[in-house]
């Protein structure tokens, strides 16, 4: 059904999502801000599927799967949702270390 034929279409779709989310977040429940950002993260992780110039990133795919599994916790209460966001940030922190610090140690 979706008509994402190439990277530009997909980029445009993400841009529309961000613009409409930005406007709606003014009136929506405060937790919907982080919810939309998490959903945007999930969408951005798919960009390599539509833009062949980008390499698929297994870590981002892992994050996307986790985000998609956890994002609707926002409907079940702030605490569970917040815990999932903390877990995602922790995953990123570990990956940052792996990519930029441990790698530098090896090469430096």
């Amino acid at each position: 059904m979706s008509n994402k034929s190439d990277g530009n279409d997909y980029l445009f779709e993400i841009a529309v999502f961000l613009a409409t989310s930005a406007r709606n977040c003014i009136d929506e429940p405060p937790l919907y801000g982080p919810f939309r950002l998490l959903d945007a993260l999930s969408k951005i992780a798919d960009l390599p599927k539509y833009a062949p110039c980008l390499k698929d990133d297994p870590f981002l795919q892992e994050i996307k799967a986790f985000a998609d599994e956890k994002k609707f916790l926002v409907m079940y209460g702030a605490e569970e949702f917040k815990k999932a966001l903390d877990e995602i940030v922790e995953m990123f922190a570990k990956e940052l270390k792996k990519r930029y610090l441990e790698k530098q140690k090896e090469t430096g």
């Binding site: 059904m1 979706s2 529309v16």
Partner: peptide
């Protein structure tokens, strides 16, 4: 096609 546009403008 219309549905896809509606989905795009509906976070």
């Amino acid at each position: 096609k219309v549905l896809d546009v509606i989905r795009k403008i509906s976070p």
